[in-house]
């Protein structure tokens, strides 16, 4: 079950990254959350054949990544993890959409274009979301969600899930370790034991939930959740928001690659 341990470690690694103090980490969490949402909308709003126009949008994750001084390997790994799903979703496109187009002097089926477009869009959106978490951290993100008036209970549930996923993972880990020690010649868990293992885990989780609730109730919890004062919005935060939002709008409504291309061609003519 070392995979489970690894996943838990990976999850916590994002928290460690979020604890750094860089220009990007200091930006108000709400600003980063809004910008990420806006970025996602802009990325997915492009038509599935408009690959070239997506290229300027690569700047956002690249610049944020370098300013936040994050390590490349763990983030790249996390982006790669989702790629098999994306490839699975888009791999049949070239068969279904077999009309041909000419692109850079080459003839392709349009399905290839849509496939590449899905690939780029997914990489950009996953990268932007990962960067948000890696530069903000879950508790600051939760504060931002509260500022957006997301109901307390949802935010509380998110935080508690995040807090206890490691405890649950450790419990699952212990359960599976105990199983595998008494089933030495088996690979994985025999299907006859799935039910009782999952059931055990559920029961342990319920017990744990009960005790956590009791601990909260003893300290005056009545369903209202107070997380302290949110951080203050600074001028720099607003500037950061406005500049990136303006850039996204520009990319969305002006065809920058063609414009640059025609400028270059015009200059060389």
């Amino acid at each position: 079950m070392s995979n489970l341990t690894n996943s838990l470690y990976n999850l916590r690694q994002m928290d460690d990254l979020a604890d750094q103090d860089t220009l990007i980490h200091r930006i108000h969490p709400l600003v980063k959350l809004l910008l990420t949402l806006f970025y996602l909308i802009v990325v997915v709003s492009f038509d599935r054949y408009e690959i070239i126009r997506l290229i300027p949008l690569c700047f956002y994750p690249l610049i944020v990544f370098s300013l936040a001084e994050l390590p490349l390997a763990p983030l790249a790994k996390k982006i790669l993890i989702v790629q098999p799903f994306i490839i699975g979703a888009g791999v049949l496109n070239p068969l279904f959409d077999s009309q041909t187009v000419v692109f850079a002097g080459l003839t392709f089926s349009r399905g290839w274009l849509t496939f590449i477009s899905i690939f780029i869009k997914s990489s950009l959106t996953v990268a932007a979301t990962l960067l948000l978490i890696a530069t903000t951290g879950m508790h600051r993100l939760a504060a931002a969600l509260r500022l957006l008036r997301i109901p307390r209970l949802f935010v509380l549930q998110l935080l508690l899930t995040y807090r206890y996923i490691s405890v649950l993972g450790e419990e699952a880990n212990r359960l599976f370790r105990a199983y595998s020690l008494r089933a030495p010649r088996q690979k994985g868990v025999h299907h006859r034991a799935w039910g009782s293992l999952a059931g055990q885990l559920l029961l342990r989780t319920l017990d744990r939930a009960q005790r956590v609730y009791q601990a909260m109730a003893l300290r005056g919890f009545t369903g209202e959740y107070f997380s302290g004062a949110p951080p203050r919005l600074r001028l720099a935060d607003l500037l950061y928001l406005i500049l990136w939002a303006a850039f996204f709008l520009l990319v969305r409504f002006v065809d920058i690659p063609s414009l640059l291309g025609s400028l270059l061609i015009g200059a060389s003519a």
């Binding site: 951290g137 508790h139 939760a142 807090r163 005790r211 956590v212 009791q214 601990a215």
Partner: peptide
């Protein structure tokens, strides 16, 4: 009350 398992009691981030 302080619980036996501190993980039950430390639920914030």
């Amino acid at each position: 009350m302080v619980f036996q398992d501190p993980d039950d009691q430390l639920f914030m981030t």
